[in-house]
């Protein structure tokens, strides 16, 4: 029995330990103050930038597709071809690595090496990889293609491996019980379970690769990023606006069509 009248009630706090709670709160506040204080802001430069910002916004009404069309077309072609090839090649390499990186199907030494490859690929930004590949293979879309393929491996293999680790073991076990070989087991017991999501992830990666292809041009790996970089450097905001709009439209198109395909597959 509890004493009822006048008993106070307070919501139980998220972090039970009082000292830890306050340490986190104070820590966060101190960090924020320090971070904001160390931020150097050049207000004159920003005031100067305001008209430019307005000019940039005005550049969208209407954007200028015409005067740099040659560059835009070249960049777009490079970006699109890079996207397709790198996605296909990336997936082709990712599937075996993904299977190898799933603890429940691969022996440990394959598991460890595949996980190693994934970790390396995931740790670095595409841009950093692109810098290295440009240094190795020269400027141009080939370096971009290799960069995006490499990045695709880290992304797709990891998610595929996690998917395989999450499968329903009953189905896989049933196939194994029929006396199937390892390959048959993968084909019948595992592939049907992960295929829809693999297709979804591949389409998603296609979308990401296109967006990234617009970035790595900045460090010389080809694609529409180079065009954009030039336009912005020359303060040609109306051409830059055109490029940005093209990117947005293509990404939107890719997103809608991939969700349509995913709907069909699942």
């Amino acid at each position: 029995m509890i004493a009822i009248a006048g008993q106070r009630w307070r919501r139980p706090p998220l972090i039970a330990d009082v000292r830890l709670r306050w340490a986190l709160i104070v820590g966060a506040l101190v960090y924020l103050t320090l971070a904001l204080a160390s931020l150097e802001v050049n207000w004159n430069r920003i005031a100067e930038g305001l008209p430019r910002a307005l000019r940039f916004i005005a550049a969208f009404f209407p954007p200028d597709f015409v005067s740099r069309w040659g560059d835009i077309y070249e960049g777009l072609l490079e970006s699109l071809t890079m996207t397709v090839t790198s996605t296909v090649v990336g997936i082709a390499i990712s599937v075996p690595i993904g299977i190898g990186a799933a603890r429940n199907v691969a022996p440990w030494w394959i598991y460890v090496s595949c996980r190693g490859i994934i970790a390396i690929s995931r740790s670095f930004q595409e841009v950093i990889i692109a810098i290295l590949f440009v240094a190795l293979f020269g400027f141009g879309p080939l370096a971009g293609f290799l960069t995006l393929s490499f990045a695709t491996i880290g992304f797709l293999s990891k998610l595929l491996a996690e998917d395989i680790e999450d499968i329903d073991p009953g189905q896989a076990e049933a196939i194994r019980a029929t006396g199937a070989s390892w390959l048959q087991w993968i084909n019948y017991g595992i592939q049907p379970q992960v295929m829809p999501r693999l297709i979804g992830l591949s389409l998603y990666r296609l979308d990401i690769n296109f967006r990234e292809s617009a970035v790595i041009g900045i460090v010389g790996a080809g694609g529409i990023g180079a065009t954009l970089n030039t336009a912005i450097d020359r303060y040609e905001f109306d051409s830059a606006a055109a490029v940005l709009l093209i990117i947005i439209v293509i990404v939107m198109f890719a997103e809608y069509s991939s969700s349509w395909i995913r709907g069909k597959v699942q």
Binding site: V127, E212, A214, V215, I218, G225, L228, I232, I247, M252
Partner: peptide
């Protein structure tokens, strides 16, 4: 659609 590096640019 626009990567942060492009926004930064």
């Amino acid at each position: 659609s626009i990567n942060s590096l492009i926004w930064a640019l």
